[in-house]
Write a protein that binds this DNA or RNA. Structure first.
Lengths: 231, 231
DNA sequence: GCCAAGAATTTTGTATGCACGATTGACTAA
DNA sequence: TTAGTCAATCGTGCATACAAAATTCTTGGC
């Protein structure tokens, strides 16, 4: 318990927002680390090491692990530690099938419920996406892409659906990241988005549903091809 | 620490299966209690009391709480205890909308992938459902009904989808239970199931999808009516 | 009698220590 | 040399103790 720990404690305290427990802070931080790929699927999380790194005891670390586990980000193997979940290609495809359906439902609802303000936002974000699609910055492209989809999630005006869809996107995100998008993917996405936008703005529910499902399924196919090539 | 605790400790130890942690046991037991309605939405869970009841310390109880929270069965209010989640009618309707989509996807996939063995099972379970539908036993009806849907979930051959759908069903289950089904609901369900079975056996994916969506949505409507009448 | 402030109590959050199970490595025997 | 077993070590699971926050109760003033 010397200088090193004091510094670590300070860092974890700094991350803590008012009224938050340490377990919640750790949950957030670890989740981000996993989503950003700093901790990779298959990695083992050591209670002791993480506790030391953040300058806290093992108790809040354990509780954070349980939270991560319930979100299916890690596997809790009793008495054998926790490992960041490694999703097989089959499960990944299954997840895409579900995500296509959920995103499709979002699009269908959005086509009926989107406000004119949201419609304008959507157009604006799309313009930005077109710009970044000409570049090579994967992170930036992802960020704007997520922004685009978030607008549709919100426009569906179904909080539960939006949250579930968002969570599913998070779960596949670490794997999408590892697929360093080929440049053509950027352009394809833009084109697919345009079909979705057209259908939503025309308030054509079925067409919006179909366009979104296609979009997600195509992405899933690309990912599958990529992974299949490597394993 | 007297006779009472010794008895409680014995009971919790008895519930434990090999290789399971206490937190997991508590998670299971509490989940069941919530799903069965023994603990009602809005109820507050006291760490100390539950620890004493099961004859364990607060540590595994807290971990079980986190697990429940991640499944959205309880609300974890930092420093203010956990309460069994009280779902508003709006959220409930939102959940039904999502469930209709997921169950619909199950039906669609099942219509293409169901084995002849599963088809026979489905028919057999349906016959049993017809029998219990003539009675008044809500619990038995629910059990057979879940069995029916489980066959379709499995037949979809998408493990992730099956698990998500099952989980969603669990989350709405406590509220469905409180709707002491009117007898006519039994019969309506049987009729709706027959439409689903027909579509699946005919391998008509779109019809199966539509029939299942309708089935779930009608149930949601009934539930909404019931709740609206009470609140 | 009511409201407010503060003290006491209750309850959650965190740390630490001990115990048990799992994993690993060494040593023995075939 | 290899397979198997036992011991040592490492890490997780659980309990207890302590700290901090929230709630409740009490008391004093108006």
């Amino acid at each position: 318990m010397t200088k090193k720990n004091a510094a670590a404690a300070a860092s974890s305290a700094a991350l803590r927002q008012s009224g938050e427990t340490l377990a919640e802070v750790l949950h957030r931080e670890l989740e981000q680390a996993i989503l950003k790929g700093e901790i990779k699927p298959g990695d083992r999380l050591d209670e002791h090491e993480i506790a030391q790194r953040f300058g806290v005891s093992r108790t809040p670390v354990r509780e954070a692990f349980r939270l991560l586990g319930a979100n299916d980000l890690v596997d809790l193997r009793s008495r054998q530690g926790v490992v960041v979940r490694k999703i097989g290609i089959n499960t990944l495809l299954e997840m895409f099938q579900v995500m296509a359906e959920l995103e499709g439902l979002c699009a269908r609802l959005a086509s009926r419920r989107m406000s004119s303000t949201q419609e304008a936002d959507m157009q604006r974000v799309h313009e930005r996406l077109k710009v970044v699609a000409t570049g090579n910055d994967v992170d930036e492209f992802n960020a704007v892409n997520i922004e685009f989809h978030s607008i549709i999630h919100d426009a569906a005006r179904n909080v539960y659906l939006a949250e579930e869809t968002r969570q599913l996107r998070n779960r596949v995100a670490p794997f999408l990241r590892r697929v360093t998008y080929k440049p053509h993917r950027f352009q394809t996405t833009v084109t697919e988005h345009e079909a979705i936008i057209a259908a939503i703005c025309a308030h054509d529910a079925e067409k919006a549903h179909a366009a979104m499902r296609l979009h997600v399924n195509l992405l899933g196919d690309d990912l599958a091809d990529f992974i299949a090539a490597y394993e």
